[in-house]
Write a protein that binds this DNA or RNA. Structure first.
Length: 329
DNA sequence: GGAATTTGACCTGG
DNA sequence: CCAGGTCAAATTCC
């Protein structure tokens, strides 16, 4: 067998798969909120569809981000309001020579999310236009990469299928031990009703004082609140890299995580269309001159501006019910 | 003044 | 050779 599929057809199929999965995930989210007694059955059906899609995708080696795109608006990288003067020749005829170990790490996780916040503090060290991709990819490394030798990295790119979401790929693991980079789980919260997730967010307002950051934080939080509003939040206990043990899960569970996150993200997307829209615009057309502050009018605003923005894992981490993801055997 | 970001150049794997 | 990943100087922001 092994009929060789034309590359473009394969890509198109992959794209379709991704979209189908997104749709199914959204549908699933919707069903979760449904108050119909047939909902569970429908959910089961959708789960089945998702599962099939996942296996099909893994068979085709399709990740969360369907490559394939077309022309590229090409991110208006231009450093926002002040725009950089220029650099002309790099100083004197200085032949930069450096050597660095080429990427050798394997991706450890890929998520689709609509916020760049993940509880860690990242420092952006590069951005690159990617072939076949409409959006540039941003490269981040843990802020403690130099200080504590933490080698965690991540790549962030806008989703092809839904530009208001980000495809975040994590590499390496966090070896740093800084309070600001360790996800805080605020899960007990005593008597707080689960449908009020406000207690899942904790800001450390010491210093976050830039406009862009502030507004960004605002929308992030509202998103989380929105997500918390539904039971899906319970399933969002994602694979935070706590320390030594990273998310070395099987591809299978990866898919599941991704699906569920997709589902939850879908909800958030619905509830916070305003933000999604503006963010998309910001990147696409209005291009950065709008938000002066922050200093990053280009692609994904770095979360660093948020200083100590700590996001707790949504949902019940401590519970045994995260077997949904079966992250650990 | 220090920290973070931007961005062109450099380097490497496929 | 090309695309993608990283470096590091310049610049901006707080």
């Amino acid at each position: 067998m092994s009929t060789t599929l034309p590359a473009e057809r394969a890509a198109a199929a992959a794209n379709d798969l991704v979209e189908a999965r997104d749709g199914a995930a959204t549908l699933r989210t919707f069903l979760l909120q449904l108050d119909d007694r047939r909902a569970p059955w429908a959910q089961g059906v959708v789960d089945g569809v998702l599962s099939r899609l996942s296996s099909a995708m893994s068979a085709l080696d399709v990740g969360g981000a369907a490559a394939e795109g077309g022309q590229s608006p090409a991110a208006g990288s231009g450093s926002g309001g002040a725009s950089r003067p220029q650099q002309s020749a790099s100083s004197s005829g200085n032949t930069k020579k450096r050597s660095f170990s080429r990427r050798s790490q394997r991706p450890s996780d890929t998520k689709i999310t609509d916020t760049l916040e993940d509880g860690h503090v990242w420092r952006k060290y590069g951005q690159k236009e990617i072939q076949n991709s409409s959006y540039p990819r941003s490269y981040y490394r843990c802020t403690h990469s130099s200080g504590q030798g933490c080698n965690a990295k991540r790549q962030v790119q806008s989703s092809e299928t839904d530009p208001s979401k980000y495809v975040v790929t994590y590499y390496g693991e966090h070896t740093c031990r800084d309070p600001s980079t360790i996800p805080v789980v605020v899960h007990d919260a005593g008597a707080a009703a689960p449908d009020r997730a406000s207690n899942l967010i904790s800001f450390g307002p010491n210093g976050a004082s830039n406009n862009a950051a502030a507004s960004a934080g605002a929308y992030s939080s509202s998103q989380y609140l929105a997500m918390g509003g539904s039971t899906t939040a319970d399933q969002l206990s994602t694979s935070w890299c706590t320390s030594d043990d990273m998310f070395s899960s099987s591809a299978g569970s990866f898919m599941q995580v991704e699906e569920l996150i997709g589902a939850v993200v879908g909800t958030a997307g619905v509830t916070s269309t305003a933000m999604a829209g503006s963010s998309a615009l910001d990147r696409g057309g209005l291009g950065g001159m709008a938000s002066s502050g922050g200093g990053n009018a280009s692609f994904p605003p770095s979360p660093n501006g948020l200083s100590r923005f700590v996001v707790g894992s949504l949902g019940s981490i401590g519970g045994d019910d995260d077997d949904l993801f079966s992250m650990e055997p």
